[in-house]
Simulated scan of single mutants.
Amino acid sequence: MTGQSQQENRARTELRGRVALVAGATRGAGRAIAVELGRAGATVYCTGRSTADKPSDYGRPETIEDTAELIAAAGGTAYSAVVDHLDAGAVRELVARIDREQGRLDILVNDIGGEAYVHFGTPLWEYDLEDGARLFDAGFTTHLNTSHAALGLLIRQPGGLVVEVTDGTRSYNANHYRETVFLDVTKTAVDRLAFAQGHELAAHGGTAVSVTPGWLRSEMMLEAFGVTEETWRESAEANLGKDALPPYEFVISETPAMLARGIAALAGDPERQQWNTRSVSSFELAQHYGLTDADGSRPDAWSFITAMENTPARDLDVEKYRRV
């Protein structure tokens, strides 16, 4: 049995009987995390605003009901809920429902982003203030609302886990400007929220951790760059030294599977408190738990992107950053 199979089997055992809430599970990383937690044995409440009757802000076809069906197809138990996490009352009603139906909450994953309101390259004084506020509210206030409502239930049993999904590790974001003021502040605030929650949860045997994927090869990103899962790497390699999309850095991208597998393994780890208050990447989780991405590689995106700042891309061996 491979190391990955051993870890997955252990996670299935550890997560059986546990209850998870994944906020922002309609697509991308949130969907993958919800499915992986369900596959590993958890009962998963997955939330989003996109339904068959109400399309998303992104104009995407995915719905939260689809996510629940994917969890069921993976052998898990799922409950979908249409919730706007900016509506604190609606979030409290959701947590009350989980309490009524399950009597516990063991895992909270906050994965709502807000990237629909990002205007790259726009300075603060030219940024549409309403869009900037929407970005911050969608990407941070939703997390705060959800934790505020859910942590009282989560701490009833020791061992609760809160995962704040953000963009960039703490060390990377501390030294890099993240494209716009609103995006920069939003993503660093989410990391700080995990740090702060970890201090308060520690007394209850709980853990809070900030987790970032690398360059995520989500369905939205593939479509935005006009590539497919079969053509993305060839297209990125062809753009070495060019100002074109996808940029060459996309060669180090990863699917949502690696992040999802890492979070499921973290949730199933009886020693998960070692991660409390920390900022960790999908690569670090995969390396620690012996996991890989869907293609069997283990992309170390943040190291590769950082290396490109001081070394010409053509002189870097991308395989060195993808090997297991």
Rank of each mutant, 00 (worst) to 15 (best):
T2E: 15
S5R: 09
Q6G: 09
Q6A: 15
Q7W: 13
A11L: 10
T13D: 09
R16I: 04
A20Q: 07
A20W: 04
V22Q: 07
A25Y: 13
G28L: 00
G30Y: 15
I33W: 06
I33V: 13
I33D: 07
V35P: 00
R39C: 02
A40D: 06
A40W: 10
G41F: 04
V44Y: 02
Y45M: 01
Y45V: 12
S50E: 12
Y58Q: 06
G59H: 04
R60Y: 03
T67A: 14
T67L: 14
A68G: 07
E69V: 10
L70N: 05
L70Q: 09
A72W: 07
G75M: 14
A81M: 14
V82E: 12
V82F: 02
D84T: 03
A88R: 06
R92S: 09
R92E: 14
V95C: 10
E101M: 04
G103S: 09
G103P: 14
I107K: 00
I107Y: 00
L108V: 15
D111E: 11
G113Y: 06
F120N: 05
T122H: 01
P123N: 02
W125K: 06
E126N: 11
L129S: 12
L135Q: 11
F136N: 12
F136M: 15
D137A: 09
A138I: 13
F140G: 08
H148E: 13
H148S: 11
A149G: 02
G152R: 02
L153I: 10
R156C: 15
G160P: 13
V163P: 01
E164R: 00
D167R: 01
N173V: 04
A174M: 15
H176I: 10
H176D: 10
Y177L: 13
Y177E: 13
T180V: 04
V181I: 04
V181T: 08
F182C: 04
L183I: 06
K187N: 14
A189K: 02
V190H: 01
D191E: 08
Q197N: 06
E200M: 06
A202Q: 12
A202D: 15
G205A: 07
A208L: 12
T212P: 04
P213R: 02
G214T: 00
R217I: 01
R217M: 07
G226F: 00
G226E: 15
E230L: 10
E234Q: 10
E237Y: 06
A238M: 03
L240R: 01
F250Y: 11
P256W: 09
P256S: 06
A257G: 08
A260N: 11
G262W: 05
D269V: 00
D269Y: 06
P270Y: 01
E271Y: 01
Q273W: 05
Q274A: 04
T277H: 06
R278P: 05
S282C: 03
L291K: 12
T292P: 13
D300H: 04
A307G: 11
L316Q: 06
D317W: 02
E319G: 05
Y321I: 03
R323P: 09
V324H: 03
